[in-house]
Amino acid sequence: MIKATNITKVFGENTVLKNISASVKQGEVVAVIGPSGSGKSTFLRCLNLLEQPTTGEIFMNEQEITKEKTNKLEVRKHIGMVFQHFHLFPHMTVLENVTYAPIKVKGLSKEEAKKLAKQLLAKVGLTDKLDAYPNRLSGGQKQRVAIARALSMEPEIMLFDEPTSALDPEMVKEVLDVMKDLAHTGMTMVVVTHEMNFAKEVADRVLFLDDGVLVEGGEPESFFNQPQTERAQDFLAKIL
């Protein structure tokens, strides 16, 4: 469904991604893990063109999206994204946050958008917060609204950029539970995460990045039990 070939990203003098190739199949859940600064987030941000790769191509449904003349906004309509720091629109209520893009971008009527938003907010367990402003919500609630907001565009694939890293420990579970539910509905997901248990339980495949290089990838079971490379072994030894 989405395929990256030989992605390199250079920021000034720093090469953040080095020749990364990876693909994600329809319905697959891929966890991207690795130490801080390994380029995980940059890789994810390349997938929806928030960062333009310096070299390399990205294909979505066989279409190359890294071409100069690609309509980025059109591509992003089909790719949902959830950020570490939520980035909800603070001046809009929960319901407005979730209805905004369907109305403005997809052209849904207000009633249709509201109906859809209410369904999604029920799915993430926030039916009672429709008219609340984001700053009245806990971190976990904010992130669940952010997930509903991304889903409101009915994307084909969802990208998660460390969705639980900014949360208090007791709120991590509620967000991971929503993500698990989403995975079970067959949503294609790419998740940058430090939650190894989530990667083990939910992911179909794990990609391990270190220093901008895709060092190792494979099924969670074999990756966590028998990592092939020394770097992966080091990393897992430190965190598990």
């Binding site: 992003r76 950020f83 909800l88 001046h91 893009a101 403005k104 991304a150």
Partner: peptide, 29 residues
């Protein structure tokens, strides 16, 4: 916050509505 622009872009919101509905209201406040 730059994240506001990114969140809008990630949703496919074009520049004009993004400015009018998301960035400028927060800036004016």
């Amino acid at each position: 916050d730059k994240g506001q622009t990114e969140a809008a872009e990630a949703l496919g919101v074009p520049y004009k509505p993004m400015m009018i509905n998301i960035i400028l209201p927060q800036a004016f406040k």
